[in-house]
Amino acid sequence: MNTREYIASGTLELYVFGKLSEEENRNVQEMANEFPEVKQEIESIEQAVINLSYSVAPNLSLDNFNTIREQLLEREATVVTMKPKSAWTQYLGWAASIVLLLGAGFLYFEMNQRDILLKDSKKENQSLQKSVVTLEEKNKATETVLNLIQDDKNTVVALAGQTVVPEAKAKVYWNKENQAVYVDAAGLPEPPKGMVYQVWALKLNPLTPTSIGLLEQTGIVGNSKIYKVDNAAEAEAFGITLEPAGGSASPTLEQLYTLGKV
């Protein structure tokens, strides 16, 4: 077999792709050492594969190709009998498939990274939006408290501590025009578990208490300890007692914490 027939046999393509046995590899290397045209053909095949690889995956360098080829040569190869005319075309297609697979994997990795960055950006945006909403709510609550304190129409009733807790204190803001009542309970100690503060509007003669609400978390204005309770049409005094959770029909006078006249 002359060199032209040897080149056309497809053996050199098999050699480049690591599909020959060790003995066959040695034969090809001997032919390449003896015949320059055989060596040149091997280099042409390798360069064609590298060019194809680079067009799909630019990061596949000559060093990477040689590393892959060496790993392939370490494996046991099964000799594939091919027709001389179709060998180069089939192995070029095989090489293109591998390169396309590598390129697809690279693109998938890039898209996955972009997807992760996009999700992180959305989370940061949602967190920022929540912070803005929270800040707006705090500003609104602060504005409500300031308006309450500065409103000249509000009568401020100071509630002093009574026998059960002398140091307790509170304030009632009562607007006689719209009858709205707010209670500043910052001066009251935290109620025991299972107990709640109850606010009373009082008529003094005869003593007639009317419950106008409980100081619970649902009635708080912002994060302050100012509570909106029920309106009071008439009142000569306000008092706060400590009652069981849910409140009482009438005040427990032994647990009268604060009291103040209008």
Rank of each mutant, 00 (worst) to 15 (best):
residue 196 V to D: 05
residue 259 L to K: 03
residue 136 E to N: 14
residue 61 S to N: 10
residue 104 A to R: 10
residue 113 Q to D: 07
residue 229 V to P: 03
residue 240 I to A: 03
residue 16 V to Q: 04
residue 21 S to K: 08
residue 230 D to T: 04
residue 203 K to G: 14
residue 8 A to D: 11
residue 33 N to V: 01
residue 131 S to R: 12
residue 96 A to L: 12
residue 235 A to P: 00
residue 257 Y to M: 11
residue 251 P to D: 03
residue 194 G to P: 06
residue 208 T to F: 13
residue 181 V to Q: 05
residue 160 A to T: 14
residue 179 Q to F: 12
residue 8 A to N: 12
residue 5 E to V: 00
residue 160 A to F: 08
residue 15 Y to T: 03
residue 56 V to A: 09
residue 224 S to G: 00
residue 44 S to Y: 05
residue 15 Y to F: 15
residue 56 V to T: 10
residue 10 G to L: 04
residue 220 I to D: 00
residue 60 L to F: 14
residue 262 V to T: 13
residue 232 A to D: 02
residue 52 L to I: 10
residue 202 L to I: 14
residue 124 E to D: 09
residue 211 S to E: 06
residue 212 I to Q: 05
residue 118 L to K: 15
residue 100 L to V: 09
residue 139 N to S: 04
residue 127 S to H: 10
residue 185 A to D: 07
residue 38 V to Y: 02
residue 260 G to L: 07
residue 259 L to Q: 01
residue 58 P to V: 11
residue 6 Y to W: 10
residue 153 K to E: 14
residue 87 A to C: 12
residue 106 F to C: 02
residue 207 L to W: 07
residue 160 A to N: 11
residue 173 Y to Q: 09
residue 191 P to S: 14
residue 254 E to L: 14
residue 103 G to C: 08
residue 96 A to I: 07
residue 254 E to D: 15
residue 49 V to S: 02
residue 133 V to S: 13
residue 65 F to H: 08
residue 248 S to A: 15
residue 92 L to T: 11
residue 232 A to E: 01
residue 200 W to S: 02
residue 136 E to V: 08
residue 211 S to Q: 05
residue 1 M to D: 04
residue 251 P to R: 03
residue 23 E to A: 13
residue 200 W to V: 04
